[in-house]
Amino acid sequence: MSGEPSLSPLRLFFREAIARSVGEEMRRDPRVIVMGQDVGAFGGSYREFSGLFGEFGGARVRDTPVAEAAMVGLGVGAAAAGLRPLVSITYMDFMMLGLDPLVNYGAKLRYKTGGRMTAPVVIKTTAGAKGQGVAHSQCIEAWLMSVPGLKVVAPSTVADAYGLMKAALREEGPVVYVDHKRLFPSAGEAPRDEILTPIGQACIRRAGSDLTIATHGYMTGVVLEAVDVLAGEGLSCEVVDLRTLSPLDVTTLSASVGRTRRLLTVEEGQVTCGVGAEVAARMRESFGAVPMARLGALAAPVSFNPVLEAACIPDAGRVCSAARALCG
């Protein structure tokens, strides 16, 4: 309220921001339920659902068998019939098992019924490498970007982990919410008041004039680390955190690249047909042949082996090298 001193923001862990967001939405809307492996009394593999089972009980916070295909199918079906389910897929790699109901039913339902039905489901899943090997480390969000009707969001901050989850749970169609193993232990600030992070809006995390770096999720922090180093060398980088991968915020990207006339894309997933490939193609259509480069994982599986894992995925040093090469 005006006239009163504003309260300081809350300091939360990333996982707490998710639990707070889902809990608030469950209190607000009895149609919101959570389904997934170990989401009940265990509180989620990363404790990101901690407290929900105790508050809402087993009817709304449901442990499932290990059955990703059916879990996603139940989610889209329940959504089409009036619930607003959140389906938790512990590792993004296992979303492959649930793509049929998500892509063939959930994402197409509004279209195939001429707008008469929708599937407001959120698939929350965890991407990224953290020593768990070739089938538990992948970032396949770019695969999902080519599905019409499917929204894809990827928070990089505690505030957006909270705000994007709220927005996703209020969407009328399916949303895939991609978080990252390395983000869960991170802490950050979230406002005390309810906020929604609008889906479809990127965010400029750092203003700069020499180069636009477009990135998302955990890589945003890696890029910011690199940008600090580059600033010491006199290179001014603008960091665009995409936040929503589909639909892409081409407006924010275009405004940035229009200023800097150079683009570097950074992602943890594959460069081939990756997020950066789409961003670069869109910017090429707007600006012609401005200097561009893409940085992502090597074209290889991501090993559990710490040496090979580190060799495979981008780090701040590689971001710096790629930025220097573009601006040199």
Partner: peptide
């Protein structure tokens, strides 16, 4: 493909 979706429709009835 319709089986799990039907189970979701049934789940919706049960929860609501």
């Amino acid at each position: 493909g319709n089986l799990s979706i039907a189970a979701g429709v049934a789940l919706s009835r049960q929860v609501l």
